[in-house]
């Protein structure tokens, strides 16, 4: 405890350094991430105009690339992603009450005309929006039967994804992004420390989401594993999402913790976890149900907990930040 406090006083960034750090985070991590999401989502929308059949390879490829781009930034849950529930709309998961398939089935059965009007469609339940809904429409046997209405619905979802992604990128490239890099009374954050704390909280929340949701949900308990609760299992992307998220969180940590004491330990913990994930060879975590393969998924979860612990310890002391409340705080 005393040692940590000492480190805190020694490494506390000067105001000038903190704002440089914010600008680095914004320009080399946050903006490029959302720019890529915008481009991939625009491409998905364009492709779906020509290819709307659920099994179409081009559509599925464009869908995969856009979802990849989202997973890489999905933990940046503040500011532009929170406006108008954009993050929820793009990636609503976990859906513990099965609202997404229920909502889509009802829309298809009634041929709900909201799909013809983008403004009206964006007002609909978020359960009909985003990558989670599109996965059902492309991969779930009960919801992927091609029809003229189905095609229009797919296109409505991709248009909405493109619109939402563009709005987030525009905010980060506009006044919000400018204000993030220059905290003050009229900016989104009153001080450098507030902005850094928020970014730090986003990093930890992202790590914990991988631990508790992406891995924790399918793991369930030893006696009752829950393979059907794995994220994006229909598209075979459960492990991929952990890997993409981990890679992006690694980038974020590298910038956030640059020059901090303990940064190498965090760095090596990330490398260990990423290697373990790469070696897993279990795309939808089906292995949770068998003791031997389950052990390896639990080990990956432990690797992530180790990163979380180290990042918490060294980043909070070094940056002088504390973690705020996050959306996972409820139950």
């Amino acid at each position: 405890m005393r040692v940590l406090l000492m480190a805190c006083f020694l490494a506390l960034p000067l105001p000038g350094q903190a704002s440089e750090l914010l600008i680095a985070l914004r320009d080399s991590y946050i903006r490029p991430g959302f720019d890529r999401l915008q481009q991939e989502s625009a491409n998905l929308e364009a492709v779906s105009k020509e290819h709307c059949a659920p099994e179409d390879t081009e559509l599925r490829t464009a869908f995969g690339s856009a979802w990849d781009a989202w997973i890489a930034v999905a933990h940046l849950r503040f500011g532009p992603t929170e406006t108008d529930n954009r993050a929820f709309s793009l990636g609503f998961w976990p859906d513990t009450r099965g609202t997404v398939p229920k909502t889509l089935a009802a829309m298809i059965a009634a041929e709900n005309p909201a799909v013809k009007d983008p403004a009206q469609f964006s007002e609909m339940s978020i359960a009909a929006h985003g990558f989670t809904a599109l996965e059902f429409l492309l991969y779930d046997p009960a919801l992927a039967a091609p029809s003229p209405y189905h095609c229009t619905l797919v296109q409505a979802v991709t248009t909405d994804i493109a619109k939402t992604s563009a709005a987030i990128a525009a905010d980060w490239n506009g006044p919000y992004g400018a204000g993030y890099g220059a905290p003050g009374p009229d900016a989104p954050f009153a001080s450098d420390l507030d902005a850094l704390s928020k970014t730090y909280t986003a990093m930890l929340t992202g790590l914990e989401f991988n631990i508790n949701a992406r891995l924790g949900r399918p793991l369930g308990s030893f006696d009752r594993p829950r393979p059907t609760r794995a994220e994006a299992r229909r598209a075979g992307r459960s492990l991929r999402h952990v890997q993409l998220s981990l890679a992006s969180l690694h980038d974020l940590a590298s910038i956030l913790m640059l020059d901090l004491e303990g940064a190498e330990m965090v760095e090596s913990a990330f490398i260990t976890a990423r290697e373990a994930a790469a070696a897993l060879d279990d795309p939808v975590f089906a292995g949770v149900a068998a003791p031997q393969s389950r052990l390896r998924i639990e080990a990956l979860q432990q690797d992530l907990k180790k990163i979380d612990e180290l990042a918490r310890l060294h980043a909070s002391a070094g940056l002088g930040v504390s973690q705020g409340f996050n959306a996972l705080d409820g139950d």
Partner: peptide, 24 residues
């Protein structure tokens, strides 16, 4: 105070219901 305000009440109980437009 913080967890009930934010993650639980504002998030799980109020905002989510509104986003899903689900009367349940």
């Amino acid at each position: 105070m913080g967890s009930l305000s934010y993650g639980e009440q504002a998030g799980e109980r109020m905002r989510l219901g509104l986003m899903l437009n689900d009367p349940e």
